[in-house]
């Protein structure tokens, strides 16, 4: 499919990520390398990830720090260019879009960031911050209509139109995140990439923001790519969940399946690590070990050094994502060979 051909029938798939990889050169400067006789060091932050997101749904990516989930978010938004693979938005290859097409494309997706203190320019008034996408995409001109639109956006996210005159430092963390959301909504996007939008917030504020995001999704038919390390939040907000480990997706399935019947041993481990707020007295089974250094990932399945079910094949051969009869896809030799007990958890 080329960048310009529009599908005849409007596909239900809004975003398609095909075998995307991103490598960072983290080598020392040339002179140091020569003197210390070191090789170039390549960090494979994302190593061949494929997924699709349907219109109106929320796909979450979960994983521990260093698993590449935030890199995927930035690749989708065009902040990084992929080292390999392609990203298609509404059937258009983003790498091939240029000029006007690209600008129109950019207006259709926006991003919400993690740190409400760093994501708003401290020297800009909130009104200017929210108006920026509108002006950049030519959706309005400075004037009363624009001010009215900014006021409307502020009202939509639960702030007052009068807040447009304030500076970011006059707001609390949760209010700033509302401003971020208002900015993201101002170009009328269909698709929002949310990179840990609530992980810097207190629980009661997190609840406000999650509720707001759900309300907005319903009202505007938004599609979300939601990045988080918090499984409880993910289970609340998403329709489907992808679990990432060391730059690879290990399991993708709808939320219910992931949380009631986790297949991949890593997913099972994450599942058991969720703090038990209901105090059912369930025994935690903490998995030994930590995420290995991504500069020197293990051979075969990256999870095998921590996996209780690993065998010779896991050390040698990298598992591919395959469909599972229970729904979704999983990349695990053990699951494929039916060596791993499937744990069913009560919903």
């Amino acid at each position: 499919m080329t960048g310009q051909t529009m599908p005849i029938e409007k596909s239900n798939i809004l975003l398609e990520v095909r075998d995307v990889a991103k490598e960072f050169d983290v080598s020392k400067p040339w002179l140091n390398r020569v003197i210390e006789r070191q090789e170039r060091q390549i960090l494979k932050a994302v190593d061949g990830v494929s997924f699709t997101i349907n219109r109106g749904e929320t796909l979450s990516l979960v994983g521990e720090s260093g698993c590449g989930k935030s890199t995927v978010a930035r690749l989708v938004c065009g902040l990084y260019t992929p080292s390999r693979g392609s990203i298609h938005f509404d059937g258009m290859d983003m790498a091939k879009a240029e000029g006007d097409v690209l600008r129109k494309l950019r207006a259709r997706f926006q991003m919400i960031f993690q740190d409400p203190y760093a994501s708003l320019n401290p020297r800009w008034r909130v009104g200017k911050i929210i108006a920026e996408p509108i002006l950049v995409h030519g959706l309005g001109k400075p004037g009363d209509a624009l001010n009215e639109r900014v006021g409307e956006l502020l009202t939509q996210v639960g702030l007052s139109p009068l807040d447009a005159e304030k500076f970011p430092h006059e707001f609390s963390g949760g209010q700033r995140q509302r401003v971020s959301i208002a900015r993201a909504l101002s170009s009328n996007p269909e698709f929002l990439v949310c990179d840990e939008p609530t992980s810097a917030l207190d629980v009661s504020v997190q609840a406000q923001i999650l509720n707001l995001m759900k309300d907005l999704q319903r009202e505007f038919g938004l599609t979300y790519l939601f990045i988080s390390h918090n499984l409880a939040v993910v289970s609340h907000i998403s329709n489907r969940v992808g679990v990432m480990y060391l730059g690879r997706l290990v399991e993708v399935a709808d939320t219910k399946r992931i949380f009631t019947m986790p297949l991949h041993p890593y997913t099972q481990m994450l599942q058991s690590a969720i703090p038990d707020l209901k105090m059912t007295g369930k025994q935690r089974t903490p998995v030994a070990g930590e995420v290995p250094n991504p500069l020197t990932p293990p051979t075969g399945c990256a999870f095998h050094p921590r996996c209780p079910h690993a065998n010779e094949r896991c050390k040698r051969e990298r598992p591919e994502m395959i469909d599972h009869p229970g729904g979704g896809q999983v990349a695990c030799h053990g699951v494929e060979e039916k060596r791993i007990n499937i744990i069913k958890l009560a919903a």
Binding site: C77, L79, R106, S119
Partner: peptide, 24 residues
């Protein structure tokens, strides 16, 4: 992140440099 936000919006590098980074 506010610079990244401006990049996602699609502002040119020169505009980001002078209107976002410079005042800070």
């Amino acid at each position: 992140e506010y610079v990244q936000a401006a990049q996602v919006i699609g502002r040119r590098s020169l505009a980001i440099m002078f209107s976002h980074v410079l005042p800070n």
